[in-house]
Design a protein around this nucleic acid. Structure first.
Lengths: 184, 184
DNA sequence: CTCTGCTTTCAATACTTTTTGAAAAATTTG
DNA sequence: CAAATTTTTCAAAAAGTATTGAAAGCAGAG
């Protein structure tokens, strides 16, 4: 923030503006995207910003670039670190903390899958197991339908769980090799 | 609501209560689950209710069973029908409309995937294509990092898109055969 | 056409989640 | 240790989302 950024040559006159515009549009889109999937918009925007930033950024810089408050930045950076998507980075002789995002999009996916599986799928499976036996022995249609529905869902959830677990464990190359062959 | 439900025999004294309790717990859990994934809690609860209900229900019955207003039921039933998860069912000689859920959980998954792919993934891919060229020719690190990030994300989004498209088109048995062999 | 019974709409309200910003806590430096 | 700088916390405010309920709309029956 205190230093003047160096000027780089460019073929196009409007290049500098265009890059800024593109960055802005991507950050917005990533924010909306995350939001639609139950991730706080600001958290996703900070993530987007760090994804396209060549250098680590300080909380101060994020505040200014995204126009959000100190507390908000702090809160969401912590969440991003909890998810393993962003790491703190210290610089020798500097007091201020900097932050970088893991730029490997496959790693990002794995971490998001791991986190949400733990938070949402696993509790659902536990519940389904707990309710699994209810109504199995009864003739009441309500009981029977409940039992059948829960059994089907439980079976499906188990499959999903295994697929996701494999995804989380997969090595990037292996995963892509198989998938790229399978899917077009 | 106006007719007395028939009594079914059961091995356990507390069976009736237990089934009701289980139904309630499942509906709640499904509501929270949907909510975490960006689906309105009530919409998910109505879906859960119809999933475990042996008979079609009217809007009136849903209102009473879930304790929600007429307008709310109407709105969310419409959304569920838009997603293709619930169908209207008319009875001969009856004016009132009834609703049933598609009980095939694999179909449900496919429909949800299709809908969200259309609403969220496709627009993101369009944007990435649009922004794809920005900064490719520049030396400015910001431009280069933006370009690299967007290229990586674009490539990944394309893979995800193809995988999901295959899932949507897959026959259940085929899907499971392949996946069960691949994963564990 | 009018009554009746049901569905749909939507402005107002209630509820939930996010954001702010100032104060407190923590950490480094001299 | 106190001063300086930075991070963290959290109650209050703002923003966003869901829900209500009364009124309007619609369709079949008489």
């Amino acid at each position: 923030m205190t230093e003047t950024p160096p000027q780089y040559p460019s073929d196009r006159k409007d290049a500098e503006l265009s890059v800024e515009e593109a960055r802005k549009r991507f950050i917005e889109a990533w924010g909306n995207f995350g939001n639609a999937w139950g991730i706080n918009r600001t958290m996703a925007q900070i993530h987007a910003l760090l994804l396209i930033e060549p250098e680590p950024l300080s909380a101060e810089q994020i505040m200014e670039l995204l126009n959000i408050s100190r507390g908000n930045v702090n809160m969401n950076l912590r969440a991003l670190m909890d998810w393993g998507l962003v790491a703190r980075q210290l610089r020798l002789g500097e007091r201020r903390e900097y932050f970088v995002a893991d730029k490997d999009i496959f790693q990002v996916t794995k971490k998001v899958v791991r986190e949400r599986k733990k938070r949402e799928l696993s509790p659902m499976i536990e519940l389904l197991d707990e309710l699994g036996a209810v109504g199995a022995d009864q003739k009441d249609p309500k009981a029977r339908e409940l039992n059948h529905s829960l059994t089907r869902i439980r079976r499906f959830a188990g499959s999903a769980d295994r697929v996701l677990e494999s995804l989380i464990r997969a090595e990037e190359s292996w995963f892509f090799k198989i998938f790229m062959k399978l899917f077009r």
